[in-house]
Design a protein around this nucleic acid. Sequence first.
DNA 1: AGGCAAGTACGACACCCTTCGTAGTACGAG
DNA 2: CTCGTACTACGAAGGGTGTCGTACTTGCCT
Lengths: 141, 141
Amino acid sequence: MSSESTGKTREIDIKVRTLAHPSRGELQLDAVLSALSDPIRRQIVSQLADVPGEQACSAFQLPVSKSTSTHHFRVLREAGVIEQHYRGTAILNSLRAADLEAQFPGLLRAVLQVGIKEAPSSATATATAGESQARHPNAKA
Amino acid sequence: MSSESTGKTREIDIKVRTLAHPSRGELQLDAVLSALSDPIRRQIVSQLADVPGEQACSAFQLPVSKSTSTHHFRVLREAGVIEQHYRGTAILNSLRAADLEAQFPGLLRAVLQVGIKEAPSSATATATAGESQARHPNAKA
DNA sequence: AGGCAAGTACGACACCCTTCGTAGTACGAG
DNA sequence: CTCGTACTACGAAGGGTGTCGTACTTGCCT
């Protein structure tokens, strides 16, 4: 539909590039627990919880390739743990803390509280020392 | 070894049939969350939390085969969520609630609290009505 | 217009997980 | 001693997951 109607640049249907999210009531404990089972995804969630405001995917120093990053962000979004929306070419992420608290009270806090001792180097300690956080070999800088 | 040494009942090496458990300090959030991601395993944990005292594996009406049951119990034990020990041919199970609370405070409560509305028919409501709990086709009675 | 940066889509691979059935072991009861 | 009960062990099938590389789309900037 609306492909090349007259040969001019007349694309009427605006492709907004929306991302699908489950509503608050659709959150499934299965999906949320599975999503939080992965250490990399917990790292993402932890950073989102520590740093206020929205953050682009590129703001995360994950020890995996870009493709794999995309995968993890999608799992978190489809589980309803994070919210994602486009801003230019970037995607801004934020934690759905309120929705999670409404459906599974105490869960997020319980999981994040552990991360403090088990997996340090959350964004709060970014400038602490010699960068113990592993980056992916294919990382640019 | 020690099969029929003299033909009498002289088995010296006592096979206690012990089950391996992680110690409290060895509990891994990864393993615990993965273990709790499965609905069947949450059903087991939920029943253990509701009914006081130890319960044999056969006390659970799970919608899977016996082999699969064994598998799920083992996953829970190896993650450190439950404790198992032999009593005759049966295995008695109990929740390691204190250990879990020590390592991941609030986690167990958060997960179990959800089960109340998402998955009814916990042992507290056993005698409520017409047995909506699915049993496995291969079940005996 | 051209190039770059941020992500996505797709296909491939290896591994793990859930499930089952069948066979085996250990213990208690008749 | 023989049988039944309560599980485990093992192997197999089927689907899912984490990982990657390559190719593609989209939008911003010069």
